[in-house]
């Protein structure tokens, strides 16, 4: 019995490490969606497509950089630059051409516009990048592995996944929170999040806020994808599976709650990795079980505030 515990205690430790790194990626996937949803009240189904496009762009950029003979470290800024590029191009394009025309329409229509966009972008990805899995692992190889002791054994972990991903996720979390609380633009965004009518009434230009937010959200989606590209192959269909996961995170977190998204991502990441060790059959349903469980106890999500019902 004591032996069993000793063994599983160690395993639990490993599960924790895996859980944190996978939570980091889940957070990066969901944070942009959370932000956009919080401010604009649009559940952007095309978020998954932006994620995929970010991943494809970063992989292409990495391969291109390598073909130019640039040093391996160049693949790291390439990731960030690709994400910024995707955000800067697609964000304003989608917001001004599509979303702006439907802000006054039924939320269902807004959602379906992004659903239509998702379908279109699925094929656009295929037209641009084909169907063969793409990947560029320069960054992972550059950072190498870290040996974590496990009893008498050692378990090598990717430094990229173990340190860099959680580091970036934490930076984004702290940076975004500070930006929203401390800067004028951030406060304006929060004001719009809390009460759109009141914000407009006191002269806040919500058009500009929406454009900014959506572009930022698109860049974050692309960053999530770009960060995944060194460890995972990008294939057609990755957008569809990504978006359901981010939906689960956003609903668990509570509408537009960045810190909620971080905690939800942590719960899902840890839940999944613990499941792989102790009940692998449940790994797939973990995000949904967590979401249902949280919403049962807190119908507005972890950090959601109960909205008074319309009279």
């Amino acid at each position: 019995m004591a032996d069993w515990f000793a063994d599983n205690g160690l395993l639990l430790g490993l599960a924790l490490l895996d859980g944190i790194s996978s939570a980091a990626l889940i957070f990066m996937v969901a944070v942009g969606l959370t932000l956009v949803f919080g401010v604009m009240r649009i559940l952007n189904v095309a978020h998954g497509s932006l994620y995929a496009i970010g991943a494809y762009t970063a992989a292409s950029a990495g391969i291109f950089a390598a073909s130019l003979g640039l040093p391996a470290w160049a693949s790291l800024p390439a990731i960030v630059l690709s994400a910024a590029l995707v955000g800067a191009v697609t964000g304003p394009l989608i917001e001004t051409l599509l979303l702006r025309r439907i802000y006054d329409k039924d939320p269902v229509l807004q959602l379906l516009v992004t659903f239509a966009l998702f379908m279109i972008l699925e094929d656009v990805q295929k037209l641009i990048w084909g169907v063969q899995p793409m990947q560029n692992d320069t960054a992972t190889r550059l950072l190498g592995t870290i040996d974590v002791p496990f009893g008498a054994d050692v378990i090598p972990f990717n430094a990229y996944q173990l340190l860099l991903l959680p580091g970036v996720a934490l930076t984004v979390l702290v940076g975004l929170t500070l930006f929203l609380r401390r800067t004028l633009t951030g406060r304006v965004i929060i004001a719009v999040t809390e009460d759109r009518e009141a914000a407009t009434a006191i002269g806040i230009d919500s058009t500009r806020v929406f454009l900014l937010t959506f572009t930022f959200g698109a860049a974050l989606a692309a960053l999530g994808g770009a960060l995944s590209s060194p460890t995972a192959s990008v294939v057609p269909g990755v957008g569809a599976s990504t978006i359901v996961l981010s939906f689960a995170v956003v609903a668990t977190a509570g509408l537009g709650r960045i810190e909620g998204a971080a905690i939800a991502a942590l719960m899902i990441g840890l839940g999944r990795s613990i499941a792989v060790y102790f009940a692998p059959e449940f790994e797939v349903v973990v995000p949904y079980i967590i979401m249902v469980a949280v919403l049962l106890v807190r119908p507005q999500g972890l950090f959601g505030v109960a909205v008074t019902r319309r009279v």
């Binding site: 359901v244 939906f247 349903v285 919403l295 119908p299 999500g301």
Partner: peptide
Amino acid sequence: RYREIFFGMMNLALSMVFYSLLEK
């Protein structure tokens, strides 16, 4: 008990659980 986005998401989650069970 749920409204709007939460109503949608609850339904989504349950259907995905069912989908996974069909595969499991």
